[in-house]
Design a binder for these strands. Structure first.
Lengths: 317, 317
DNA sequence: TTCTTCCATAGACAAAAAGTATGGCGGCAT
DNA sequence: ATGCCGCCATACTTTTTGTCTATGGAAGAA
């Protein structure tokens, strides 16, 4: 099919497209004009359509030819780039990727990220730093982190972000809680019992958004307890201070359980974020991997049923 | 540099990586084993590092080799894909791209999109449909649109979206308005005069978001006038009904002017959206183009860098 | 040991890329 | 006009290189 198309051909047509005549392109490539003519012609024969229209003054590009030339430019750049990166990996010149993460993100996600990184950059290290989003953003800004995973939304214009996960937001309660008898929690029950929150100072924009969502369904909760990690939140739930909203895929304490909210489909969204000016060698591939994560995530929508998954993640290997 | 690396090499190393022995890979490729051995070796010499470690049982891949193999697989797929697309363009088999857009998006953006499409798919048509986001989303869902441009945030889980623009939100007023005498509008002045809004029914999530941002700075506006297009909004401003918030890059009536809000950096964000299941031939390239748009946008960001953090319209509601 | 299964090397051959020579065709200046 | 120049195509030769066959070595299995 297209097995006769080689990088050589791509290089040639890019040169021809730039030089606008085959003769001049041949000079630029240190090639005899008939050699180049033939290569271009062979390429066109293989494709099944002309890339260039020959005129007396030189060549003019055809519409599908334009697509091919654009592709060729990109493919050539990418080839040299990947090879340079692989050489750097071989020489052990890839600095550790410094990844920040909020303790509120799903640990599976962090694991997924690490696995993918190990696959893309074998034998290259990841340095993990936990922390609250405001602090992590600051570190991204000052360049002491290369990227971070944390809950959306994220304020600011200097960030490039890529959503990588979306999980239902569910109510976390004691297993013996009367609410746990039903498959779902009603809004009115939630309104009455919801008292435990993530510390607003830890991630103000996410807190505000949650408050907004609650107020839209007529709940103006009393924020009587706030915690800076999911573990602390669960401790408070266990200690009987009330119920809390958590990401469905948070690993939870064995004495606790979760229930969805009736008629509501709120979600906890996670993004991979890096600074506009960040330039870690691995970043381009990491970003593309984050896009894959988003795609695979949107493919399999989580079924809205609660499950207890007491998984403990080993943070540093 | 890497000019000796050809698609042939990529194909070979992918086969070797899959077969785990050079001998079996050679069979699969209908090639003699020494031929394949030599090609792999030549490739490795060119790269400067081994892709495979030879053992008696076959070959094992090296860390940088893994990167190269992963790249090779992708590059080979992409080559055939692009060629197939270009052939389709040549045969005139590309159906028109049905693009929806909200009248509230910046017209430059639509033009940019159309220009890019014309560049990527020369001689291929775009069918444009204006409308309100709820209606456009419905059409995306039923498959009568291939993609759409409209203001964020966007509700729902079935969408793939890509932010493509971010512009400051400014106050639109008559040129003779007393507020126009100052370079900026104070929040208290805004609170008093802001009465004209986009019709909430046109894009409820965006309206709610705006209301939330306003309430965060202590403004609970009276929505006395609503309009379904920027033109109608400007007509109301001109007719003296009050002031309105608009995208800074909206083309405005000659009798009107705009002013930023003091200490506030709200933005109007635009996204390119398509359905999870959409599969227009051009979509992959269009999506990549949308990513470019985002990058170029974040490159020339407005030079605002003071104490008040700009509020981002969240990526996903 | 002996057989098998890998991979590497060497030399012959064939395919294909690059080079040289030449011709046609249409502008352009004389 | 007419002759010159620039551009591309074709025909044929040379050089490069990809592929083949034959063969050897090394390590695990019988």
């Amino acid at each position: 099919m297209s097995d006769l198309v080689e990088f050589r051909h791509l290089k040639y047509i890019v040169a021809v497209a730039e030089a606008a005549t085959i003769t001049r392109a041949a000079e630029r490539l240190f090639l005899a004009q008939p050699s180049l003519s033939k290569q271009v012609k062979d390429f066109e024969d293989e494709l099944g359509f002309p890339i260039f229209i020959r005129t007396r003054q030189g060549v003019r590009i055809t519409p599908p030819g334009q697509m091919i030339v654009a592709y060729a430019q990109e493919a050539l750049l990418k080839r040299t780039k990947i090879i340079a990166m692989a050489r750097a990996v071989h020489r052990g010149e890839v600095p550790p990727f410094r990844l920040g993460f909020s303790s509120f993100i799903n640990p599976d996600l962090l694991q997924l990220f690490r696995d993918a990184y190990a696959r893309l950059f074998p034998d290259c290290l990841i340095h993990l730093s936990g922390g609250d989003p405001l602090h992590l953003l600051h570190r991204l800004e000052e360049g002491t982190l290369d990227g971070a995973l944390f809950p959306m939304p994220i304020d600011g214009q200097d960030w490039v972000m890529q959503q990588v996960a979306r999980d239902p937001l569910v109510v976390c309660m004691q297993k013996e809680d009367p609410l746990a008898r039903n498959a779902q929690v009603s809004l009115s029950d939630l309104a009455e019992r919801l008292t435990i929150f993530r510390d607003p100072a830890v991630h103000p924009s996410a807190h505000n958004r949650l408050m907004e969502m609650l107020s839209q369904v007529g709940i103006v909760p009393e924020v009587s307890c706030s915690a800076s990690t999911p573990v602390d939140i669960q401790w408070m739930v266990r200690a009987g201070y009330g119920v809390a909203l958590i990401d469905q895929r948070t690993p939870i304490d064995s004495a606790l359980t979760t229930r969805p909210i009736a008629g509501i489909h709120w979600t906890a969204d996670t993004a991979f974020v890096h600074h506009n000016d960040a330039d870690h060698l691995a970043l381009p591939l990491v970003i593309r991997f984050a896009q894959e994560m988003r795609k695979s995530m949107s493919g399999k929508k989580p079924p809205l049923k609660d499950q207890v998954r007491p998984v403990q993640l080993e943070l540093l290997a």
